[in-house]
Design a binder for these strands. Structure first.
Lengths: 334, 334
DNA sequence: ATCCTGCATGAAACCGATTACATCGCTTTG
DNA sequence: CAAAGCGATGTAATCGGTTTCATGCAGGAT
């Protein structure tokens, strides 16, 4: 059944020309005469010819594909980034392959980082081994990054973003501000945590060890953080919390509400990411907006530039974030 | 820089054997002797050889890739389905390509439905033209389906699922039950709408035209539906609403709350999908749980079975849904 | 001793396009 | 009028593996 797929030689025979001419007529029409082009065209439709990508790839030594490595496809945070990537890659003639680094094994990853599999790589997972990614194929990193890997990065200033959140809460008069961090070792967690500590220090506010709760970006870890927060004695319990992800913030709010705590009356909450849904929960969440689609677009554009061999400074691209003030934060009570 | 990539002949020379033997040693070790295998192995590591997929694909006449066509990557609903697909495909030696049918043009789609680009297709978008997908490459449909396309389908019973929602609300004593439908023409919207109408009729409950509001599955359309609902006169306003997606339910609840309406005291709300977040909003949403990861897994498994040429009955696989009762629904007030 | 069998291996065809190079006919230029 | 230039096209090498077929050799059966 596959054997009957017409080859370029079938088209050539029908059109009465050589395969070379067919190839030219299809991929570089300017090279052949008007008549030939028409003859080839009608032969193509007559045979139902479709070219074999594998053969072309072999000859061209390129695949036309870009692989995105995401830590967890099930996490909606990445959807919009991928969407941004796809919106740039598609029109440029590349197609996007997506691999979940969780489901793909370590050797599997290496297989992706190969020129014969993909022309380029967009890495969205900072926990990958730098060695597996080095050298083989052009890559850029987006959002997260692998320490020690030299590659263009497209990201936000997580430190400064955390500062925005802290400033907002401090400006509202809060003096005991807590933080729920992301997974230990994650580059984003670290940056947001240290940004928080820095800004609190800069404003002369305390940041005792107990004010940092450990999370992992997930909804449920936010819920658990809420339980830990509830345990704290009244006069050491923060009146405002900055959480390193919106998912955790949602989990946190839902859990404290279940215990009769009111947000923002009893505690103000700031999230991180501005995923679409948090504008529509109650109370609508104050959060740091990450330009997710733009992160994807810019990462894809930088990769394309490298692939085309254009000059592209090695440095990081920092995209701006924005504090979105909604109803989950309020002035501190006396 | 690409030129220095070692070829199989380099390995062969170093190992003192022919390329045929190297190929066999790598892809079918049982065929060569112990000694040869070892010699090839060390030659491979010495040269840093990695085989060229394009060349192998050309010869094998397969690509090792499966394409998933999703209507909108930015919609988190699909993330977990894709995750389920990837979890099956990865171990089976296939890699998953994901294409957003929104960003890929119509011709782009046709390019994906080709044997030289992908060995199989998983279609998650019911709005594609059946013609573009017919015949070229094995495919299965998941969640949504293209009317008129013959292919194995993996889905839920949307009609019956809507019935579950209606039953729940009716059992709580609600007599005026409204529905917010998904986008017009969408197969899921239609099934859920008619399932709602059927079950209401079966229970002798009214379902006037005004009780159906038009949405498009998005958060914002849920918000707009809330505004329409608020406009309704008190005695024609439904006391319970069943919305065809969780996103719309969230938008609906947030908007009515903004207008001082309490959920579930003033209106009960049931959603559809059970996306992770809705368990953690307030009030936690009563909804129909779709087994998203399982949908993806089963679809991938059926596709693999077809690719292996194993017998696979053409029919639909119907996966069970579940009514998850949370706090957004309550008995009707007198 | 002869023949057969089977294993390990090499030579070469093959997958299906692209493209460097050669060719041919015709026009332009000195 | 010969040389050079140019456009359109064909020939054949090439991309880098896989696989068929042939071969050589060792061991077992007759």
């Amino acid at each position: 059944m596959k054997d009957d797929r017409p080859r370029i030689s079938d088209v050539a025979r029908l059109a009465g020309v050589s395969t070379a001419t067919v190839s030219r007529a299809l991929s570089n029409p300017a090279l052949v005469s008007e008549d030939t082009r028409a003859a080839v065209q009608s032969a193509v439709t007559a045979t139902g010819y479709r070219l074999n990508q594998a053969a072309r790839n072999l000859r061209h030594r390129r695949t036309g594909g870009i692989v995105a490595l995401v830590p967890n496809l099930a996490n909606p945070f990445f959807s919009q980034i991928l969407s941004g990537i796809a919106s740039v890659l598609g029109p440029a003639g590349y197609n996007l392959l997506i691999a979940d680094t969780r489901t793909a094994g370590a050797e599997g990853l290496l297989a992706y980082a190969e020129p014969s599999r993909a022309d380029g790589l967009i890495v969205l997972d900072g926990s990958l081994p730098a060695a597996a990614l080095t050298g083989a194929v052009p890559l850029v990193e987006a959002c997260e990054w692998v320490p020690g890997l030299v590659a263009p990065r497209v990201k936000i200033d997580n430190r400064a973003a955390a500062g925005l959140a802290v400033d907002h809460l401090a400006d509202l008069g809060h003096r005991r501000i807590g933080h729920v961090a992301g997974p230990r070792g994650n580059v984003l967690s670290e940056a947001r945590l240290s940004g928080t500590a820095e800004r609190l220090a800069a404003r002369g506010l305390p940041f005792p060890a107990g004010a940092v709760l450990q999370g992992d970006f997930s909804l449920d870890s936010g819920r658990l953080a809420a339980l830990a927060w509830l345990e704290l004695a009244g006069d050491s319990r923060p009146t405002a919390m900055f959480l390193a992800s919106d998912a955790m913030a949602c989990g946190f709010i839902a859990e404290v509400q279940r215990h009769g705590i009111s947000v923002p009356r009893d505690v103000s909450v700031v999230g991180f990411d501005d995923i679409e849904l948090v504008a529509h929960v109650s109370p609508p969440l104050t959060t740091i907006r990450q330009p997710r689609a733009a992160l994807g677009r810019v990462a894809a554009e930088r990769l394309l530039r490298r692939l085309r061999g254009e000059a592209d400074q090695e440095g990081d691209t920092i995209l701006p974030v924005e504090l979105v003030i909604r109803a989950s934060t309020a002035p501190a009570r006396e």
